[in-house]
Amino acid sequence: MNQLQRAKLIMTRLDEKYPNPPIPLYHTNTYTLLVAVLLSAQSTDKKVNEITPELFKRGDNAKDLYNLGQKGIYECIKQLGLAKTKSKNIYNLSKSIAREFNNIVPKGFEILESFPGVGHKTASVVMAQAFGEPSFPVDTHIHRLAQRWGLTSGKSVKQTEVDLKRIFPKDQWNKLHLQIIFYGREYCSARGCNGTKCELCKELFPSRKKGILCKKA
């Protein structure tokens, strides 16, 4: 089975398991999605979803969270890792959106990545899931599975993104991003599989005996 054949099989199996994958982070609009994705850095989605409903009650738009202040934001998110840095970034990006963009999250990779705390992955998620622009955000799950499935060298997250965009149809990127995340959590986790245990790894590489040592992002 060559790489393109594996890609076709992967899409088929993921469509069977996750035909309509939801966005795993609680949000109510584009702004709250941006904030939730920023908060998810080095934190689990589950933990982020536990604290964001209260945060978004205080403010579900840039102006209100800016007015809440950095200390107020921190009090709502202090259970998360890097809470001080995240509260500062949310405060400052909220200030920019409220003052410079009429309280509306702007569309575009370059402008999103110019905001404090917003890297390429965060911008890609917002572009994909809020604006419907074809993107392929690569998180640790996707980076790991792409290596196990023989779709990338795994040298970097950037290279993994390039490789996946080359292999998969553009109109499938946004859905595949979510599908792979869900599959990685449920069946092909860091400790639960090494490229030889989950059903998809075994179907893709039935003769593989040795586990895959994944390169970290």
Rank of each mutant, 00 (worst) to 15 (best):
A128P: 01
P134V: 07
E54M: 13
V126L: 07
P134N: 03
K46Q: 15
D60V: 04
E133K: 04
P137G: 01
S94R: 08
P53I: 02
H120P: 05
E100Y: 09
T52R: 15
E113I: 11
L80F: 06
G81H: 02
G81Y: 00
L93N: 04
L65I: 14
K95P: 10
T152C: 01
A62H: 05
Q129E: 12
S153R: 15
K71E: 14
L93A: 06
I77H: 09
N92V: 06
G81E: 03
F115E: 01
H120S: 11
K57C: 07
N61Y: 08
E54N: 13
K84Q: 06
Q129S: 13
G150N: 00
L151G: 14
K84D: 06
S156G: 12
V118Q: 02
T52I: 15
E100V: 07
I51Q: 05
K121I: 05
H143D: 05
T152P: 04
M127T: 04
D60L: 07
L55K: 09
L55Y: 08
I142A: 07
C76Y: 12
F115H: 02
L65E: 00
S96H: 07
P106G: 10
A146D: 07
I77C: 04
P106Y: 12
I51S: 04
A98Y: 09
S114W: 02
K78Y: 09
K71M: 08
K84H: 10
L145W: 00
I104T: 15
Y74N: 13
G69H: 13
N67R: 09
F115N: 00
K46D: 15
K86R: 03
K88F: 13
T140E: 13
A128F: 03
G119W: 11
D139M: 05
V126A: 03
V157I: 15
E100T: 13
G59D: 01
R58Q: 12
K46T: 15
A98N: 05
V138I: 15
G81M: 00
I51C: 10
R58L: 09
Y91L: 04
E110H: 13
A123I: 05
C76N: 12
R99I: 11
L65T: 12
H120F: 06
G117N: 04
E100Q: 12
F131W: 12
N103V: 09
Y91M: 01
F131N: 05
S94M: 02
S153L: 15
I77Y: 03
A98S: 15
W149V: 12
E133C: 02
C76G: 01
V48K: 12
G132A: 03
A130E: 06
M127S: 11
F56S: 02
Y66K: 08
Y66T: 04
C76T: 03
H143A: 08
S94P: 09
E100A: 08
P53W: 04
I73Y: 06
K63N: 11
K46Y: 14
K155Y: 14
N49D: 10
D139C: 04
G108I: 11
G59F: 07
I73A: 06
I97D: 08
H143K: 10
Y66S: 07
K158T: 15
K71G: 13
G132E: 05
A128T: 02
A123R: 01
E133W: 01
K46H: 12
L145G: 00
S96Y: 11
Y74C: 04
I77Q: 03
S156V: 05
F56Y: 13
G119D: 08
Y91G: 03
H120N: 10
D60C: 08
E50V: 14
K95A: 11
A146F: 13
N49R: 04
D45F: 02
